[in-house]
Amino acid sequence: MFDSTRSDKIFQVINYAFLGFILLIVLYPLVFVLSASLSSPELLLKGEVWLLPKGLSFDSYARVFSNKDILTGYLNTIKYTIIGTAINVLMTIAAAYPLSRRDFVGRGVLTVFMVFTMFFSGGLIPTFILVRDLGMYNSMWALILPSAVSVWNVSIMRTFFQTSVPFEIQEAAMIDGCSNIGILVRIVLPLSLPIILVMIMFYSVSHWNSFFSALIYLTDRAKYPLQVILREILIQDHMGEMIDTFDEGIIRQMLLAEGLKYAVVVVANLPVLMIYPFIQKYFIKGMTLGGLKG
């Protein structure tokens, strides 16, 4: 017949080669951005940076931190992320806990009521009109309230409550005269810290990265979050490429702006990069718990 151990060895080699290729593809752009941000802009623009920083320089970072728009955007984003995430997590707990209780009458109906919104929506225009009519146009609340709860995250949290906090313990507390809210605060939540961390991470990353709501609801430049400023720096500036320009001054300007782009990408993702190693073991659990129980 055929030699299975030999074919297994070949398979292993191919498999490692494949994963090596994937690693290269994912890592290279990330490493390049970091190296480019630390290189001198002139060498970067001559195309001399390939993998490691050339002519180590912190000029680009100095330019980032002296840019008023970026600083304001950063502070705004921090504010929106903290307030938004706090509301998200409280609302998610408020939805998930009752739905996790098997003695909660109406949980089937309420689940359908929420899940339906995942598959059908009124669309952008009616939502926009509503937000405007509620007087939230050009206010922070337009970025926070319309996405106060994610059905997917409620489902993750409910599954966690059901599988990790035995209902029998809760029943025992009920017999001792503990109220439902008391059970939630004193028994369920202390046992659910890992999932609360996952929720904080999911929601805060989505606030940190959110761009669209700010684009459509904010008009006041002083309220712009980081992503809107980033777009101006990273993308709109690139439109200049469409016009063929030979003006030395403009080219010089573009050259300097180029180094800034790489540094700003690093700075914008710094908070996520810093917490990533600490939370990665939790979010895998969160993702898998999400269960496909929709």
Binding site: P29, V33, V205, W208, N209, S210, F211, Q227, L230, R231, I233, L234, I235, H238, E258, K261, Y262, V265, A268, N269, V272, Y276
Partner: peptide
């Protein structure tokens, strides 16, 4: 974990 803005920015770069 990169935002869409950063991703598209990187694509442009």
């Amino acid at each position: 974990f990169l935002s869409t803005v950063v991703l598209v920015g990187m694509v442009f770069m």
